[in-house]
Design a protein around this nucleic acid. Sequence first.
RNA 1: GGGUCUGUGGCUUAGCCAGGACAUAGCGCCGGGCUUCUAACCCGGAUGCCGGGGGUUCGAAUCCCCCCAGGCCCGCCA
Length: 554
Amino acid sequence: MFQEKYHQIERMLRACTGEEDVLLTTGGDHADLASTVAFKLAKSEKRPPREIAAEIAERISADPELGDIRVEATGPYINFVFGPSLLAEAVREALEPDYGNHPRRPERVVLEHTSANPNGPLHVGHIRNTVIGDTLARAFRKAGYPLEVQYYLNDMGRQIAIVSWGFDHLGLAREDGEKGDHYVARVYIAANREIEKNLAITEEIDHLMQKVERGDAETVRKFRAAVSLCAEGIKTTLAALGARHDRFVWESDFVRIGDVDRIFERVRRLPQAHEDETLWVDLSGEGFEKKYILRRSDGTSVYSTRDLAYHTWKGHNYDRVIDVLGADHKLIGAQLQATLTLLGEKAPEIVFFEFVSLPEGSMSTRAGKFVSADDLLDEVTAKAFDEVTVRRPELPEDERRSIARSVAVAAIRYDIVKVSPEKSTVFNWKEALDFERQSGPYIQYAHARACSILEKAGEFTRAYRYETEHEVALARHLAKFPAVVDETVEELRPHLLAAYARELADLFNAFYHYDPVLKSGGETRNSRLALVDAVRNTLQESLLTLGIDALRNM
RNA sequence: GGGUCUGUGGCUUAGCCAGGACAUAGCGCCGGGCUUCUAACCCGGAUGCCGGGGGUUCGAAUCCCCCCAGGCCCGCCA
């Protein structure tokens, strides 16, 4: 309804003013939609904007196509306010199952996210990638796109060689109950300590990398074993966070099936290519200073070469290619895009997010300086269990445990997704453990409240008459949800969805305190119950899109 | 040094790309509200030269230039 009315009003304003861009936006507190086109016309017509706004408002309000929308000029602004029948329509739409879903769209999308190196567990920096990526994935599916989510497993990098060397030489045993990824990190950290003590080991690592690139069976088997062990642990963590990948793509496959060699051949034919002891591309024409090296002097490929092969493959199999990457990949991401373009391939769209650090500085798997996602989940779940036990002591323990797990994921995911990706952040335990306003649990709580009211209400006949300030504000906000899903996907900004859900919870809580539902009667009661149900459904759909459980009880 | 992102009340943060109506909200602080639909809640109050300086514009947190501060990047690592 909202998007339809937006386009209708835009059309009417265009017809009325002759302007292409009629400067139509959401009107905030003032209106559902508002235009500042009068300012623009004031210049060419040399007349005061308020005069022009008044004229436009008058002409448009005379048009029967307008329907149940009130137009008024407030000074130079032209405001459009939805009338009662549109508010009723908004609530009716918000009651539909899968509210916010868009019709199927044709473009096949591949979204890559997380793709952390399998040399240790995911830490609080990695899961910013996971939460942004998984939320976008859910939003894309809601927006109607056929989507595949991929994790690119770097299984032949230097750090894997180090892990493999560590397994062979350090004799560290796996502890009881130790997750594979944490075990791998322990070996990786210890191996790095050895390398610091004895630099000759570096040559052994180089040798391992040459062997794996040549496809030496024993070395490949060892690398795969280490990577699998770590990846299993990572998958467990991803599942606990509610993030699902459709496919894990192994980097070494692109070497094995010959795609990397084909990239070498194609790059070599580029006018920008240079071949001495290495193969490199001169991207100075694209604004990059340094050589973009794709083949080492020992003949092996580097990460960038394999990434070119991977993205070439993605470009051939999908219409849109999207990567979620940390800001430390900005340069290499831009070089990748530039080189793919030179090769005539599709360049990916990249969503960058800035770094998460600890109060004491940057995180480092190699130095063992990080807060793992597993530890974070454990701590937050323990706190959530305490909270739910205080509030709902009568619930059986297994139910409290289950609620605590959902609340913990909500707290963690929301805490991450609510911040714009371009902001760098410092991990903070106090904020991570906060379940109050502007948190995931706060939104879950609003949803549970709505469920509770509906449960107590029993049968009722829906009505749709909204008059109080709080009812009207809620209905207006409900109408915007499909547009927010669209905007999230178009701008690749998942925090828009986070803000929307929080605002809806805020409005619902205010309504809850001012407008009694069960104690009202007749059409008011039926209208408010329908509104509560519509809010419940919309909160549920937005929480689901954020990867947060919509609890009925907490 | 070059590139890039960020800088909004004590702290965290929205708005910036597509310039307009009193700059968004939370935490913290002060003061209220639970025999009433779940108080993980609500209401009121104090707190802002939107990093600094120029410019463009009828109008700048938003666009342009310079400067300052911080993060990240600048490897035959990934």
